[in-house]
């Protein structure tokens, strides 16, 4: 049971609160509460099903940003054995907003890279809330080139509000770092599969996702700008974020229709944060399917495949 509830989850929070209360009291008095609890739990499930069946785009954004949603390191630690983190861009610094290294994904040696948001105050600060600086993108480039040299497939986990907007990031060439990352993605002679697990925030996200296959979790979002940013520019008011979220077509189903996303991974009822193990397993299955589909393609074919995929985009609208 999550400890953070989103504003539209109020009825669910109330029900789950009641269950907790019952259990607490039941423990004390030895009264049989099983029946009442299971009745309430069925109600929670009905409520969750009803709510999550018709999430608005803005609600999806909130789910994608849920603080208890599993983040990149959790996927990596669950799915990748012998995970061996590698660090540093060899030019300036180590940026913990990018995590990555070598490991074995379901038996195959590979290289994984992720944007890590952190799970508590301390780790959020350490990982800079998943907002990558130029040294982070340069680290990612270094790792991708390493994978290329040794013929290892690359898996990227995308989850960022956007590249870090700061004076230091600009001073060290944030734009160049992102542009170069996209270029390195497109040049790889090994399979590159990207999975948007939460927020796919603009250039900061596409820098790791110019991939052969781009997957999204059901409630993940992927957008050119945050709904708040878009609202403040086009509506001249951040309060219009809900409308902006709708107009931006940032949900996994819309992006699938547009050919930006190749496959959508269904999430457990109530979102990945309600059952992280199941969500991560489903993600692992999907990643395995995609990697298998790229098996046997040589370097030139993989590059051409990636180019063709991006060149085909935007030929039709919704």
């Amino acid at each position: 049971m999550p400890t953070t509830f989103l504003d539209f989850e109020k009825p669910i929070a109330d029900l789950e609160g009641a269950i907790m209360e019952l259990r607490h009291r039941g423990n004390g008095e030895g009264v049989d509460i099983a029946e009442e609890v299971s009745r309430l739990q069925a109600k929670v499930e009905r409520q969750l099903r009803a709510t999550y069946a018709k999430l608005t785009p803005w609600q999806r954004v909130q789910v994608a940003r849920h603080p208890e949603r599993p983040h990149a390191l959790r996927y990596i630690e669950t799915l990748v054995s012998e995970y061996t983190p590698l660090a540093g861009d060899r030019a300036f610094a180590e940026d913990a907003a990018i995590v990555g290294g070598l490991g074995r994904f379901r038996g195959r040696p590979c290289l994984v890279i992720g944007q890590e948001k952190g799970d508590d105050t301390e780790s959020r600060i350490r990982h800079n809330f998943g907002m990558v600086k130029p040294e982070g993108y340069r680290k990612a480039q270094r790792l991708m080139k390493l994978a290329d040299r040794f013929g290892l497939p690359v898996i990227t986990f995308v989850d960022t509000a956007g590249a870090y907007p700061g004076v230091d990031a600009e001073a060290r060439g944030q734009a160049e770092a992102i542009a170069r990352s996209i270029e390195v993605c497109l040049e790889l002679g090994v399979p590159l599969v990207s999975l948007v697990i939460g927020e796919g925030g603009s250039g900061g996200a596409v820098a790791l996702a110019a991939a052969n296959r781009v997957l999204m979790l059901e409630h993940a979002v992927y957008s050119v700008i945050t709904p708040e940013g878009c609202a403040s520019i086009l509506w001249r008011s951040a309060d219009a974020a809900q409308e902006a979220a709708e107009a931006l077509r940032l949900t996994s189903d819309d992006l699938k229709k547009l050919g930006v996303c190749d496959a959508v991974i269904p999430e457990p009822l109530g979102g990945a944060h309600r059952d992280p193990e199941a969500a991560i397993k489903a993600a692992g299955d999907a990643l395995e399917t995609e990697l298998t589909s790229l098996d046997g393609m040589d370097a030139a074919t993989l590059r051409q495949h990636r180019r063709d995929k991006f060149l085909a985009m935007g030929q039709k609208g919704l």
């Binding site: 992102i178 542009a179 996209i182 270029e183 993605c185 497109l186 040049e187 603009s202 250039g203 596409v206 110019a210 992927y222 957008s223 050119v224 700008i225 878009c230 520019i233 086009l234 107009a247 931006l248 077509r249 940032l250 992006l255 547009l258 930006v260 180019r307 991006f310 060149l311 985009m313 935007g314």
Partner: peptide, 22 residues
């Protein structure tokens, strides 16, 4: 920057123009 009114499809011009350069 990106043409916001074309949303994700404008973002996708980043890899597409990179292909042009390549």
């Amino acid at each position: 920057g990106a043409r916001m009114q074309e949303a994700i499809l404008s973002l996708m011009q980043m890899p597409r123009t990179t292909i042009a350069v390549q």
